[in-house]
Amino acid sequence: MSTAPALEIRNLGRRYGPIAALDGLDLTLDAGRIVALFGENGSGKTTLLKIVAGLLSEYTGEALIHGHAPGPESKAMVSFLPDQSFLPDTVSARTAVSMFGDFFADFDAARAFALIAELGIDAHRTLKTLSKGQREKVQLALAMSRRARIYLLDEPISGVDPAAREVILRTILTQYDPGALVVISTHLIADIEAVADAAVFLRAGRVLFAGDADDLRARHGMSLDRLFRTTYQNPVRS
């Protein structure tokens, strides 16, 4: 096994026309942590995750996943849950499980079925008959049923009711491999205060600050949620 960090990002840049979504972002994350990725809309959270997942080939700088640039090797290690409904409407959860089994060597179908049942979803129903929240749960169950080395979860709890949120966070806590890295992007900070042990704050495509969650609390004397609000009320330093 390599000694490279789980995720090593150096001077990462990505533009959408005149707008820089990522502007020289540097970040190193080690395995075995659950990292909360915070930032306002447009701060670059989703762009960062998409580059690491291998969905955006055009960027400057470097993104290394256990030492690999995004590509087939890194994709075999990364389980990405986008904030998109990526499954075809016409399949059932059962078929989706079979699809994941075909594509991902680290996928555990039994675990997926157990999770889908636990989340209260009938695996035989086609996805188009499920609600948006139910579809998100199916996708979460699939993503968490890979024994991946890195999980990238983009807004996994934003579209569901508080009760389901609880189940989803518990799923993240109990299902991930302790040697894996989990990155959760969200603007619902209060919900994941206790779940994350590290936090990264993005602003305008750069890391504003990052660190151990409890150390940040001790240093600033406030919750991550308060810290986020106070930080982002201030105008962008130029």
Binding site: K75, F80, Q84, S85, F86, L87, M99, F104
Partner: peptide, 13 residues
């Protein structure tokens, strides 16, 4: 389309 979010994370060349 949105299904591309699955297609392009598959570890295939």
């Amino acid at each position: 389309g949105r299904e591309g979010y699955l297609t392009h994370v598959i570890p295939a060349k």
